[in-house]
Simulated scan of single mutants.
Amino acid sequence: MFGNETVEVDFGAGPVTVPAWTTWVNLTGGRSGIPVPTDGPVDWTQLDKLPYCHSLLWSGAERGVVAALSKHGITGLEWRDASGEIDLTSTALDGLRLTARGLRRLRLPASLTSMFLQDPPPTVDVDAPESGRRIELLLFFGDQEPAIPAGLRSAGKVWLKVGRKFSARTLHGLAALESLDIELLDPPGTLTDTEELGVHQKLHTLLIENAYDWDPATLPELPALRELELNGTRRTTAAAVRARFKGTGVEVSVSGARSERWLAANIDNPFMDWVDDSKPFAIAACKAYTKALKAVDAIPADAPDRLPLAETVLRGFVADLDAVQEKYHLIDTLNREHAGEVFAGLAARAGVPEETAEGWFDDRNF
């Protein structure tokens, strides 16, 4: 309808031209966002110029964003660095993403059906209709001990992203659990106490990801279980699970089953899973990462020229990945995004500012 039509919006930090059909607005500034004042009022009436906008990206203090959500019928929100007390009951939100280390209390609307909550404090007070029964819940725990907020313990579908180790005992309070996805993010991925899943008699779908350190014999009898998926596991684990459920009503699927030899050599390498595309391709990418990691760690912390030294290493890493792509042609969109995340991790380890690192990564051929 709008074609190439544009509108000018100014939330208080200067005018920006955007497409008239814009559906998602990033109000965090930066390279791709619309700037807002660092202090002082935000002109939320600018949303009137964007009638098709249904989602916002916001960061920091509240500053009137909740009233704007309610007035403009916004249904999707990502809020970074949320803190204090947040009451969203007046909104029509359907989807919500919160980074919430400083959050004390959160009140949720009845319209909410999915929520991503990152790093919630263990003492956070969540008030959700029906204790979250209608909400598909994704909880991301970085370097803190996982804990399920009490106000969400009726959630039936739960995804958990955790670090190196997770105990299934943490899930005891989820009385209505029917579908569970546990993803371990840091190798080797230790999953313990899975015998405790026996309290979840309604659990029909279970997905376990990257649990290379897990004894499948500890999985209890689950009378409602119908789907069991392993994504990222040992071949021996996969064989044991398949044998156990053969001829039963449980459908078992496995992806990313690794040999002991491959794991011994690459368990700590973020490109380990590229072996699914090609083993020589994965070996080359793993070597490029190992080389870059050693070079980053060799830069003295107090070196006055640390930044240019890091630039040399990181640009060398990009060049190595360019060479990998030139030879194998297997760095597709997903692998490119993954490589970007790996690059960002190396840059952070080297103390390189995020925007500076992004510029270096953009100077690539793959």
Rank of each mutant, 00 (worst) to 15 (best):
N4V: 07
V9R: 03
G14V: 11
V18L: 07
V25D: 03
L27M: 05
S32L: 11
V36W: 01
P41V: 10
P41L: 11
W44T: 08
L47S: 04
W58P: 10
S59T: 08
A61P: 14
V65R: 13
L69W: 02
L69I: 11
L77M: 05
R80P: 00
I86M: 06
D87W: 01
L88T: 04
T91M: 05
T91I: 05
D94P: 00
L98T: 06
T99I: 06
A100Q: 08
F116R: 15
D125S: 10
R134H: 09
I135E: 02
E136I: 01
L138N: 09
F141N: 04
G142I: 00
E145F: 00
P149Q: 15
G151L: 12
S154R: 08
F166L: 13
F166Y: 12
H172N: 11
G173N: 09
A175R: 14
S179Q: 14
G198P: 05
H204Y: 10
N210V: 03
D215W: 00
P223G: 13
L225P: 13
L228H: 04
F245S: 04
F245G: 04
G247H: 06
T248N: 13
T248E: 12
S253T: 15
G256T: 08
R261W: 04
L263A: 05
N266Y: 13
N266A: 06
N269H: 03
F281H: 02
Y289D: 07
K291T: 15
L293H: 13
D297I: 02
A298H: 09
A298Q: 09
E311P: 11
L314E: 10
H329V: 03
N335H: 11
E337I: 07
V342A: 12
R349T: 09
G351I: 09
G351N: 10
W360T: 04
